[in-house]
């Protein structure tokens, strides 16, 4: 997996799919809390919280295990011009 050292990996939540099952909040407790309705909430207040390299493996597990397929990992590379595939997960 090529992750350029300059652009951080971010966790993207597809809110139209998320049902707040909470698996991701268990796997990434430092990144995500849970709101009063059970949905994940980024502890840093951002729309797409940055995933530290040490949490990358858990983040990939979360992307894989989410029963609603609501998670994906984004870098600026996946988002740049010329890459048309939406929601490319690492």
């Amino acid at each position: 997996m090529r992750t350029p050292s300059t652009s951080p990996t971010r966790l993207h939540i597809d809110w139209t799919r998320c049902q707040g099952r909470g698996l991701c909040t268990e796997l990434l407790p430092r990144l995500l809390g849970r709101d009063v309705w059970g949905y994940p909430i980024a502890r840093d207040g951002s729309r797409e919280p940055a995933v530290s390299p040490s949490a990358l493996s858990e983040a990939r597990t979360a992307v894989d295990l989410c029963p609603r397929l609501a998670l994906s990992l984004i870098t600026d590379v996946t988002r740049g011009p010329g890459n048309r595939k939406a929601g490319t997960s690492l």
Binding site: Q19, G20, R21, G22, L23, E26, L27, G38, T61, A62, L65, P67
Partner: peptide, 18 residues
Amino acid sequence: ATRSGRPLLMLPRFAVAD
């Protein structure tokens, strides 16, 4: 059990799915 979004006995939610 996975669909319920609840932990099961001692298994956390992600483990239930796993």
